[in-house]
Each structure stands twice: as structure tokens, then as C-alpha cells.
């Protein structure tokens, strides 16, 4: 299956020669960096929520 496809449209020419590999890499890198940044922000938000929750709990108990 793949052999027939490759014979008709060699990926080396289609994927690398046309520069599409760089586009795919750029999209993957943006998604990955975006995910990392989003998780880092989520961590900061969780930290502030944990702090807030702790102070609310202390106020309720006192």
C-alpha cells in the first residue's frame, strides 16, 4: 500500500522537497509550546486558588 503510494508520489519529494515538513514542524512546535505555556499558567492559577481556599478555610474556622 505505502510502496504504491510512494512510487506515485515519493514522500521525500512531496513532504521534504516542498518544505511541508517545516510547516508541520512549526505547527507541532506552536501546539507544544502553547500547551506548555497553558499548563504553566494553569499551575499559577491553581496556586492562587489553593492560597485563597486556605485563607477562606482559616477564616471559617476562626
Amino acid at each position: 500500500m505505502t510502496s504504491l503510494l510512494l512510487e506515485a508520489h515519493p514522500l521525500e519529494g512531496l513532504f521534504f522537497g516542498s518544505g511541508k515538513a517545516y510547516v508541520v514542524l512549526a505547527v507541532a512546535a506552536i501546539i507544544l509550546i502553547g500547551l506548555g505555556f497553558w499548563m504553566w499558567r494553569a499551575e499559577a492559577r491553581l496556586k492562587s486558588m489553593e492560597k485563597e481556599l486556605k485563607s477562606t478555610k482559616n477564616n471559617t474556622s476562626s
Binding site: S3, E12, Y22, A28, I33
Partner: peptide, 23 residues
Amino acid sequence: GVLLLLYVFSMTLLVPLGPGLLE
């Protein structure tokens, strides 16, 4: 973790495949 995955994606997509015989 993020840096390793960036390295992995770069290598995965940019390293060429070696030669072989199809038919």
C-alpha cells in the same frame, strides 16, 4: 519535558529516511 518533545518533533520530521528498494 517540553524541550525534549521539541527535540523529538524536530528530529522526527526533519531527519531523512535512508535508501531502500521498493519493487
